[in-house]
Amino acid sequence: MGNGLLGNNFITQIGILVHDIEAVSRKYADFFGIDKPNIITTDPFEIAQTENRGESTPARAKLAFINMGSLQLELIEPDEHPSTWREYLDAHGEGPHHIAFVIEGMKEKITLLEGRGMPLMQKGEYVGGRYAYVDTFNELKVLIELLENDK
């Protein structure tokens, strides 16, 4: 089982929660000597169809992506609506939120992980694909994000 449960053991992204994405993205840019990344806002509910713990939510977040070779840092500033981002930021403060893997077969992977006691926390759509956060914290000490891009 060389590629484990996900069929892929390549970490593509580390997500970091922040209170002030403008300030933190500027600090990362200064630290790495790069241009400050563009800040985008996640899609509205009509597109994202966001669900948190099985309930629809209008939650959105500001995002900034910093490409670091084969790994991407994602800065996340959530709004006030219910989301795994907001829950985690309120409970733990700023810092790492997830590690992400690009996968194929989102529904099957979620079912597989849930069958192993790793419940789906949040899912949604984005232009070109979908994401899901799975609570793997008890086992792996970090949340996992699954990313599935349309072909």
Rank of each mutant, 00 (worst) to 15 (best):
M1Q: 11
N3K: 11
G4H: 00
G4D: 12
G4K: 04
G4Q: 07
L5E: 11
L6V: 02
G7Y: 07
G7L: 11
N8G: 02
T12A: 13
T12H: 09
T12S: 12
I14P: 02
I16A: 03
I16F: 08
I16S: 04
D20T: 06
S25P: 03
S25T: 04
S25A: 13
R26I: 00
R26Y: 05
K27Y: 07
Y28N: 01
D30Q: 15
D30C: 05
D30G: 14
F31Y: 14
F32G: 00
D35N: 09
D35K: 15
K36F: 05
K36P: 02
P37D: 13
P37C: 10
N38Q: 14
T41L: 05
T41V: 15
D43K: 03
D43L: 12
F45N: 09
I47P: 01
A48C: 08
T50Y: 02
N52H: 14
N52F: 15
N52W: 15
G54K: 10
G54I: 11
T57G: 05
T57E: 12
P58D: 12
A61R: 05
A64F: 00
A64G: 04
I66Y: 06
N67K: 15
M68I: 15
S70R: 12
L71P: 08
E74G: 03
E74I: 11
D79E: 14
H81G: 03
H81S: 14
H81Q: 14
T84F: 10
T84Q: 06
R86F: 07
Y88W: 13
Y88K: 07
L89H: 02
A91E: 15
E94H: 00
P96G: 04
H97R: 05
H98W: 04
H98Y: 04
H98I: 02
I99Y: 10
A100W: 01
I103K: 10
M106A: 02
M106N: 08
M106I: 13
M106Y: 07
K109W: 01
L112C: 03
G115V: 01
R116G: 06
R116W: 02
R116N: 12
P119F: 02
L120H: 03
M121Y: 01
Q122F: 01
E125P: 01
E125C: 07
V127I: 14
V127C: 07
G128T: 13
R130C: 11
R130P: 00
Y131G: 08
Y131N: 06
Y131Q: 13
A132I: 05
Y133T: 03
D135P: 01
D135F: 12
D135S: 04
E139C: 08
L140F: 14
L140H: 11
V142C: 02
L143K: 02
I144W: 14
E145V: 04
E145R: 00
L146K: 09
L147D: 09
E148A: 04
E148N: 05
N149F: 09
N149G: 03
D150E: 14
K151L: 11
K151R: 13
K151F: 09
